[in-house]
Amino acid sequence: MLSREEMPSLLILFFMIFFLLESLVAIIENGFIIIVLGREWVQSWTLPPGDMILVSLGISRFFLQLAAILSNFFSYFSSTGRTNYAAVFWNFANVATFWFTTLLAIFYCVKISSFTNSIFLWMKWRISRYVPWLLLWSLLISFLTMISSSEKFYLVFQSPVNGNYSEKNTSEDKKLEYHVHFFQSLRLFVLIIPFFFFLISIILLISSLCQHLGNMQHHNSSPQDPRMQVHITSLKSFFFFLIFYISYFLPLIISILVPISIFSSLFWVWEIVTYAGISIYPLFQILNSSKLRRALNKMTQDLHKRNSTPK
């Protein structure tokens, strides 16, 4: 337990509460996506490939935010020297979230883009049937990353117990430092690869939509034309998709390269900034999906009827 001197200051406590509320919003939003799409998946034993990726992304973000809460508060309030297993699971959920987000971007890029390249046409024809396998491969990569992070935590927390202040201890410290740097590099590599594919997919998709929109304007299509409205809405959606994803990726990478003490108020501000996109973008997805929007409207109407019914 923390001593009185180590108890959080009022400023840190304020940021903790803000982070907790932000996390609860993200958990509720992603939980709604999981319930609506997951129920349909269970009832019909089938789901459109895009919704399949979306519900997988909702599950990973749900557990990512939950693991972030447990990991952060455990690290702050728990006594040192005990393994933070929530941080190990956070690594799994984090990598899964990155890969599922990339898969969603690649899927929309292939299905919506108007490129006539033979590779795009081949992928457009086959990508839907490969979605379940791509999701399984993403889970496998995330699981392997979790195993690596588990080994790192074991080295960090167990090596001080087994060593003594001798030359052997110095050798163990060097070995530990090498492993920590190795796992840090591996962690960066595992996150940068999906981000790279995500960035290419979104840029290609936005470029394709802009090109198609320009062709429609060249043919004097009215701004109120439904097809033009669909493309404008899609451009806005994927532009925000790019902004929210970068708003999560960059702070996360910076926090890996330049660690900040969890007992600093700056750490909690950084956590709020990092998870802002995860707490905002699910609502954007709900409002831009006709299926999720109908479910939200139905739930709102049911709650309104229940509250307005006299007891």
Results as ranks from 00 to 15, higher is better:
40 E>Q: 11
271 E>S: 12
115 F>G: 04
63 F>C: 13
243 I>Q: 01
230 V>D: 09
55 V>D: 01
224 Q>G: 01
269 V>E: 03
2 L>T: 06
187 R>Q: 07
48 P>T: 10
169 N>P: 09
80 T>W: 14
292 L>W: 03
65 Q>L: 14
288 N>Q: 01
83 T>L: 15
219 H>K: 02
280 I>M: 00
248 Y>L: 07
201 S>Q: 03
160 P>R: 05
11 L>R: 01
164 N>M: 13
60 S>V: 06
76 Y>F: 15
78 S>W: 13
224 Q>E: 09
6 E>W: 06
133 W>T: 15
164 N>S: 14
233 T>E: 08
114 S>L: 13
81 G>N: 15
297 N>I: 08
149 S>G: 06
119 I>N: 05
282 P>T: 00
281 Y>F: 08
104 L>F: 07
84 N>L: 14
202 I>K: 09
154 Y>E: 12
254 I>Y: 07
223 P>I: 07
40 E>G: 11
207 S>P: 09
109 C>T: 01
95 V>E: 14
69 I>G: 13
180 V>W: 09
50 G>I: 00
246 I>N: 04
1 M>H: 07
59 I>L: 06
117 N>D: 09
10 L>I: 05
231 H>L: 12
118 S>W: 05
257 L>F: 01
284 F>R: 04
262 I>C: 03
131 V>N: 07
16 M>N: 05
85 Y>L: 15
65 Q>D: 14
248 Y>Q: 02
117 N>Y: 03
144 L>H: 07
216 M>N: 02
236 K>L: 07
